[in-house]
Design a binder for these strands. Structure first.
Length: 530
DNA sequence: TCTTCCACATA
DNA sequence: CTATGTGGAAG
């Protein structure tokens, strides 16, 4: 079942592209890009972003998990994702500097439960928290650098601690999420603040997952054990397991060791799709709608801001959306980790989960709207947008988070990025944070906002899609204007509300940025897709 | 449901 | 060797 084995065959696919080429599509798995619905706006925006393609590495593995219903453990200390999020990026200008970052947006606005060997909706999602951005440690770096090897986000960690001081991405247990990749041009020309900042957002629907504090579906546990080197200790080769288990526990014989669940495939699995909500349709087909392969979208930052968040909640309209906030975590470390691309393959296919419209690896493009670009990035010195080489090197990664309050891009741009700093790990000191935050913590710091904006933008709920656009979620594109799509709007008001999510936020430590963006545009969402 | 600790694995 | 990441069981 699930294994995706079947399908994949492709080597990689890129996900995104911004506009241009829809080309192939096919095999590879680029993320989908959505085209922008609206119009492209500024040309500038896209510059160069249009030919960017992103391919999810090890897509097959992601697909296997996705078919069952991927679960990612979240702990107070922070847990890595497995499979690791690694991509191959092509189409970048070798000499141009870019910042690559990720954020993880709500897949829908539901809360899930796992019972009867399957996932089902139990209620409404909690307000999302400020989204934090994870800036790849090598950022900013040239297109040549990023293209040279796989870009790995394996060090990104997920936490359920809303007050996490380490800059990890904060998620709510039993909620569905969709990771997104944003590529922001870091040239001097593009200040973040500037409206022209070009960026693309790529969404691979097969990377959607439900955050959990402990695995619910044994099939997922088994897949993790079988594929994650660090979990090898749990893998029994047959006999061994039992014994070892026994020993460890002191029990006699263990229960079922690895085998236990091992394979069952139950259908139950994917929650994602299951829910129903979503999409339904055939998954795959979906992909096409947007045609693009990758999912990236490009838009100008501004747009992003404006764009409504994808949440379920978000409305398509500008108003409502909530902005979510985002915090950025920047690691300074630079190295990329992996390189090899090997496996990327992908193939399309469907995933049961909710949305995947893009399923295939696609990234969507978002119209510019919502996905807010990562504001911070641009400005952030750290990132080097300006040009710095990446400065941070400092030690290794540090995380910086920003909390922002408001969403303005402009502000962001300039201001401060103080945070960028390399903080020692964790925290960035920011302010206490948003002052008021009535509900949300939006206060934003300038930069933060931007970033956050980006983040927000897209986040769509997976499942939901709900009525709105199915597409939204997916790709929203963040920041870049680039391509076509963009319909960005100009900066508009960034903030809006952000309904739900606000709450938490900010930890005292940092601010996050928030943004509220609304998403307006639709992006395809995963949900749709699926 | 979540947190802590554990033994074992990678790196 | 150390440091760190795993899932499971126990709490």
């Amino acid at each position: 079942m699930a294994n995706g084995g079947d399908q994949f065959g492709l080597a990689e696919r890129p996900d995104s592209d911004c506009m241009d080429s829809p080309k192939e599509t096919k095999q590879e798995n680029p993320s989908f890009t959505l085209n922008s619905p609206t119009s492209p706006q500024t040309a500038s925006s896209q510059q160069g972003m249009e030919g960017i393609k992103v391919f999810l590495h090890d897509r097959e593995l992601w697909t296997k998990f996705d078919e069952v219903g991927t679960e990612m453990i979240i702990t107070k200390a922070g847990r890595r994702m497995f499979p690791s999020y690694k991509v191959k990026v092509t189409g970048l200008n070798p000499k141009t500097k870019y910042i690559l970052l990720m954020d993880i947006v709500p897949g829908d606005d539901h809360r899930y439960k796992f019972a009867d060997n399957k996932w089902s909706i139990t209620g409404k999602a909690e307000p999302a928290m400020p989204g934090r951005l994870y800036v790849h440690p090598d950022s900013p770096a040239t297109g040549a650098h990023w293209s040279r090897q796989l870009v790995s986000f394996q060090k990104l960690k997920l936490t359920n601690n809303h007050l996490d001081p380490f800059g990890h991405i904060i998620l709510n247990s039993m909620h569905k999420y969709q990771p997104r990749l944003h590529i922001v041009k870091a040239d001097e020309n593009n200040g973040f603040g500037s409206k022209n900042t070009a960026f693309c957002t790529h969404v691979f629907s097969e990377t959607a997952f439900i955050a959990v504090t402990s695995y619910q579906n044994h099939k997922i546990t088994q897949l993790k054990i079988e594929n994650n080197p660090f979990a090898k200790g749990f893998r029994g080769s047959d006999d061994n397991e039992l014994h070892r288990m026994a020993k460890l526990q002191g029990k006699d014989y263990p229960v079922v060791p690895r085998s236990t669940v091992r394979q069952r495939a139950c259908s139950a699995g994917s929650p994602f799709s299951g829910e129903g909500r979503g999409l339904r349709g055939s998954p795959e087909a979906v992909a096409s709608p947007y045609s693009c392969e990758n999912g990236l979208s490009c838009s100008s930052p501004q747009e992003l801001l404006n764009a409504p968040p994808a949440h379920p909640y978000t409305l398509p309209h500008p108003h409502l959306q909530h902005g979510q906030q985002t915090q950025v975590y920047h690691c300074t470390k630079r190295k990329v980790e992996e390189n090899c691309p090997s496996g990327n393959r992908q193939h399309p296919y469907k995933k049961p989960f909710t949305g995947s419209s893009p399923s295939e690896g696609e990234s969507y493009y978002h119209p510019s709207s919502y996905p807010p670009p990562p504001p911070g990035l641009a400005n952030n010195p750290a990132l080097g947008l300006t040009d710095s080489p990446y400065s941070s090197d400092m030690g290794q990664r540090q995380a910086c988070m920003f909390a922002g309050s408001e969403p303005r891009l402009d502000e962001l741009s300039c201001a401060s990025w103080s945070y960028t700093c390399p903080l020692p790990s964790a925290m960035t000191p920011m302010e206490p944070y948003p002052p008021y935050t009535p509900h949300p913590p939006y206060s934003s710091s300038p930069q933060g906002s931007r970033l956050s904006a980006i983040a927000h933008q897209s986040s769509p709920p997976l499942g939901e899609h709900i009525a709105h656009d199915p597409y939204q979620s997916q790709s929203s594109g963040p920041p870049s204007q680039s391509s076509q799509n963009i319909h960005s709007r100009q900066l508009s008001p960034p903030l809006r509300e952000y309904p739900r999510y606000t709450p938490n936020l900010s930890p005292p430590l940092y601010h996050t940025l928030e943004t509220h963006t609304h998403i307006r545009c639709g992006v395809p969402e995963w949900s749709a897709a699926s």
